[in-house]
Design a protein around this nucleic acid. Structure first.
Length: 269
DNA sequence: TCGATCCTGTAG
DNA sequence: CTACAGGATCGA
């Protein structure tokens, strides 16, 4: 499920709720989600480790531990990672959990089990992320950089945006939303992108993701539930047949690279 | 660069 | 029952 905004939300919540905690023990309920070592080895290594910081890279949630270890949580389609006050009442789809003091726990829940929990030496992280493109919300991310990453690409723009080696953090929802905001058709061939289009797309990506982060907080604060990203804030995703907010024409859906793509055919070119 | 695949849940 | 799901990876 989660794309960059939801991962960012989870990290910020961890900072709020679980700064300075120490892991007393790890419990793996689904061994296949653990790598590269065995679940027992992972549990052994993290037992007694203090969490010295939380961070996000792309859609990964990172827990930096003392003694040079980092837990990397890939959330997959349905993953959540968060602090709970009482491990005696774990969420239904808990796959891995880390017991803290006072019965609290850090929980990885993942209904569909496409996510995973990997343990790395912290100094290896650069290698782990070697194929990742730039962070779209970083200051240094420019439209020229985005254009450059598409220099030799030939296919349509939307699958390009899902490719984490080009730019990280976008998934099926926010890729579609960014293209809508930039008024670019998802099927537009990359060689047909001129500078104005790259600029518009770059701007739209940043605006869309920033707004999505804020919306996640807004929705969650009021509803007190966990962040199911704010689909109400979507202009096209999941809105097949509804009226486009700009031109009132119907939103359409088609399958592209195996994923459903929503767009307004009238005002995205 | 595309399609298949991993696995499980929910909505119609 | 079928269709579909916000991700990532591998082989053709």
């Amino acid at each position: 499920m989660p794309e960059l905004p939801e991962a960012e939300y989870m990290v910020r919540r961890l900072v709020e709720c679980a700064t300075g905690v120490r892991i007393r023990e790890a419990t793996v309920l689904r061994a296949s989600l653990i790598a590269p070592q065995s679940p027992d080895d992972l549990a052994e290594t993290v037992r007694g480790r203090k969490v010295v910081g939380y961070a996000r890279r792309a859609k990964n949630v990172l827990l930096h531990l003392d003694r040079g270890w980092t837990l990397r949580v890939q959330l997959g389609m349905t993953g959540h990672f968060y602090w709970v006050p009482d491990a005696r009442v774990l969420p239904r789809f808990t796959r891995v959990w880390f017991g803290l003091s006072n019965r609290a726990a850090l929980v990885f829940e993942d209904a569909r089990t496409f996510g995973n929990v990997h343990l790395h030496r912290t100094e290896e992280l650069a290698a782990v992320f070697a194929d990742y493109g730039p962070e779209p919300l970083d200051e240094g991310f420019t439209w020229q950089q985005l254009k450059g990453s598409g220099a030799r690409a030939k296919g349509p723009i939307k699958p390009f945006l899902l490719d984490q080696s080009k730019v990280v953090g976008l998934g099926n929802i926010w890729a579609a939303e960014s293209l809508y905001a930039a008024r670019i058709a998802p099927g537009r061939a990359i060689p047909e992108m001129d500078d104005a289009a790259w600029k518009a797309l770059h701007r739209a990506i940043r605006k869309t993701l920033s707004a999505a982060i804020e919306n996640t907080f807004r929705v969650t604060r009021s509803g007190e539930e966990f962040p199911e990203a704010d689909l109400l804030a979507c202009a096209v995703y999941g809105r097949l047949g509804e009226a486009c907010r700009r031109c009132k024409g119907p939103i359409e859906r088609f399958v592209q690279a195996g994923r459903s793509t929503f767009h307004c055919p009238a005002c995205q070119r």
